[in-house]
């Protein structure tokens, strides 16, 4: 996955804002032979009915809305992100059981005591048996905005 540091900062901030509940959202960008290039985020509400401290759900209607927004910008939905409050940034058995299509990038950010920490990226293997870690390549900001 290729992404700007400012977008990673936004994912971390989202995870801190919804703590102790999990945050979630979609990654918009382009998919190429060398992986997914994330160019925008589409944060959504966690639609899981209960136990949002350890579960998240992105409603299909939110997915459709994100897909339309992406299309208007010449982009695609290339993945998703969510937070693990007070838990490591590793895919869980639940994440694997609920995994969708191989090819999407799944970003996980750990949020400990309300502070975002480790952030990792994963994709489902084609045989659907496990998540494989994906390297995160930080791309330079296109504008000279100070993101600190």
């Amino acid at each position: 996955m290729k992404i700007k540091a400012s977008l990673l900062a936004q994912i971390r901030a989202h995870g801190e804002a919804t703590y102790p509940e999990e945050c979630c959202g979609l990654l918009l960008g382009r998919s190429g032979p060398d992986g997914n290039h994330v160019q925008a985020l589409y944060p959504v509400a966690n639609r899981h009915a209960e136990q949002r401290e350890r579960r998240y759900t992105i409603a299909p209607s939110d997915y459709l809305a994100a897909e339309r927004t992406a299309r208007q910008q010449g982009l695609d939905v290339v993945g998703f992100y969510h937070s693990h409050p007070d838990h490591p940034a590793r895919p869980s058995a639940t994440d694997l059981a609920e995994a969708t299509f191989p090819g999407y990038t799944y970003v996980i950010v750990a949020v400990h005591q309300g502070r975002a920490g480790e952030l990792t990226a994963w994709h489902l293997t084609p045989d659907r048996t496990r998540f494989e870690a994906e390297p995160i390549e930080i791309e330079p900001e296109t504008t000279a905005v100070d993101q600190t």
């Binding site: 759900t57 992105i58 969708t100």
Partner: peptide
């Protein structure tokens, strides 16, 4: 449209 339900959690 084919639309995935996206869900998960930490344990």
């Amino acid at each position: 449209s084919i639309v995935p339900s996206v869900a998960g959690g930490h344990f």
